[in-house]
Amino acid sequence: MIDVVLDVISWVLLALGGACVLIGGIGGLRLPNFYTRIHAASLTDTMATLLIFTGMMLQSGFSLPTMKLFAIMLFLLLTGPTATYALANAALLSGMKPDSGVERDRGASGGVQ
């Protein structure tokens, strides 16, 4: 009984994670400029990672793979924001204006080409 419940929960989590990955990918294409695209990337980087890894951890129960999955998830969640911050800060320092609002790719002129 409890196995079935855990199975269903993990499937739901995996499905939601897949949806998050897809939405983030679509957002990366649809959103108008660099600073807004970061938000789409952070959707796939955090929420999808959390959902998919939690789903897989529920599937494998209490075992060595679960420990490994948890370690990988923790590593991704700790380093992801640091990489994103380095990226955003580099863009800011290069003179790309973050307040270009909803205009399409006006910040492009400030980038390094």
Binding site: G28, F34, R37, I38, A41, L87, A90, A91, S94, M96, D105, G107, A108, G110, G111, V112, Q113
Partner: peptide, 9 residues
Amino acid sequence: GPTVYDRVL
């Protein structure tokens, strides 16, 4: 692209 940072992202 269009900027380098988009590509790195």
